[in-house]
Computed example of a mutant assay.
Amino acid sequence: MSADTTLQGVLCMNKPAEFTSFDVIGKLRGILHMRRLGHTGTLDPMATGVLPVLVGRATRACDILPDQDKSYRASVQFGWETDTEDVWGTRTAVYSDMHVTKEKLEKALLQFQGTIRQVPPMYSAVSVEGKRLYDLARKGIVVERPTRTVVVHSITLEEWDEEAQTAVLQVSCGKGTYIRTLLSDLGKALGGGAVMTALCRTKASGFTLEQSYTFEDVIRFCREGSLEQHLIPTDQLFHSLPKLVLSEKLTGLYRNGVKLSLQQLSDLVPHAETYRVYGFDQSFLGTACVDEDEQVLRIWKNFK
């Protein structure tokens, strides 16, 4: 039996700089000798940090993750701009008279918390009229991008150097937030410009940097035969959903694809629409949705 059919779970990687998220998947396919791998959200090539990799049947969770919040440690330099909104791009503007104080910075940060609007950067994977923005940007083409709504739960100042005009920020945000753009917009709000100089994702989909491994770690796990012990169980992707445990009889029916009547279920949570479902032996079966109209529990995604 191949690893593709036996291994299942989440392998949290600490992505190194200069690797794309797809590069990480490609290298892991070579190390693990399996094709069925996916990730829960891209990181810029120069960024480092948490990249949850879905292994085996866990890849079925890619498009249904309930927890898409992320946390970052971002470094920023005030006083100039680039075409990529980070230090690795081409410099496009310099604000020699710009001087940020700690007081001004902390005041400006307040307007970037909560629900805000962003224009995706040209160097991004966003598609406009069927074309990736970064493909257009590499050809020197700049197009109008529709603004999008994102949520920043918190943004706090961790380090500040007024002489160097640099700062380190801790950012907690929702899906689709561009940290580069957040910092660029912050620079504009302070009367000039800013570029991101470093980015580390410290949390993604509920998983932390402390749970993440390097390629060297994974190679060692494979050599020791302990890789499976270092996979986080698939059901942890759905830790925010209420748990539903089925009786032995209902487990058999559920495994056979039978829709269960809500009247048969005793552990339903009022107003909950989605559940993580377990068999009578506590094995994780998958996720299911409540159909109020038909008064049944419908299978959403199976992981068995």
Score class of each variant (00 low, 15 high):
residue 244 L to H: 13
residue 2 S to M: 07
residue 2 S to I: 05
residue 215 F to M: 03
residue 204 A to Y: 10
residue 187 G to Q: 02
residue 44 D to L: 06
residue 178 Y to V: 09
residue 141 I to G: 05
residue 228 E to D: 10
residue 287 T to D: 03
residue 35 R to T: 12
residue 178 Y to M: 02
residue 62 C to I: 14
residue 214 T to P: 02
residue 193 G to D: 06
residue 154 S to M: 07
residue 112 F to G: 00
residue 222 C to T: 11
residue 220 R to Y: 12
residue 199 L to I: 12
residue 237 L to E: 12
residue 252 G to D: 04
residue 120 P to L: 01
residue 162 E to T: 05
residue 136 L to M: 04
residue 47 A to V: 10
residue 149 T to G: 05
residue 104 K to Y: 09
residue 28 L to N: 06
residue 191 G to P: 14
residue 122 M to Y: 12
residue 50 V to F: 06
residue 80 W to K: 06
residue 202 T to S: 00
residue 198 A to H: 13
residue 188 K to A: 09
residue 58 A to H: 08
residue 188 K to D: 07
residue 86 D to M: 01
residue 66 P to M: 02
residue 192 G to V: 07
residue 30 G to T: 00
residue 95 Y to V: 08
residue 208 T to A: 01
residue 288 A to N: 10
residue 137 A to Q: 13
residue 275 Y to K: 04
residue 276 R to D: 13
residue 8 Q to A: 09
residue 37 L to H: 07
residue 198 A to N: 07
residue 132 R to F: 15
residue 158 E to T: 14
residue 282 Q to R: 10
residue 181 T to M: 05
residue 168 V to K: 04
residue 264 Q to Y: 13
residue 98 M to Q: 14
residue 65 L to I: 14
residue 95 Y to D: 05
residue 176 G to H: 15
residue 193 G to M: 10
residue 255 R to F: 03
residue 299 I to Q: 09
residue 258 V to L: 07
residue 46 M to R: 06
residue 146 P to V: 04
residue 26 G to I: 00
residue 135 D to Y: 10
residue 197 T to S: 11
residue 132 R to Q: 10
residue 229 Q to E: 14
residue 293 D to A: 11
residue 66 P to Y: 01
residue 254 Y to D: 04
residue 1 M to I: 10
residue 269 V to S: 04
residue 288 A to H: 11
residue 57 R to F: 04
residue 129 E to H: 12
residue 65 L to S: 05
residue 207 F to C: 05
residue 162 E to F: 05
residue 69 D to A: 01
residue 22 F to A: 00
residue 19 F to W: 07
residue 10 V to C: 08
residue 143 V to P: 14
residue 258 V to I: 14
residue 303 F to N: 06
residue 257 G to Q: 10
residue 280 F to E: 09
residue 62 C to D: 13
residue 269 V to W: 11
residue 118 Q to L: 09
residue 273 E to M: 15
residue 53 V to K: 01
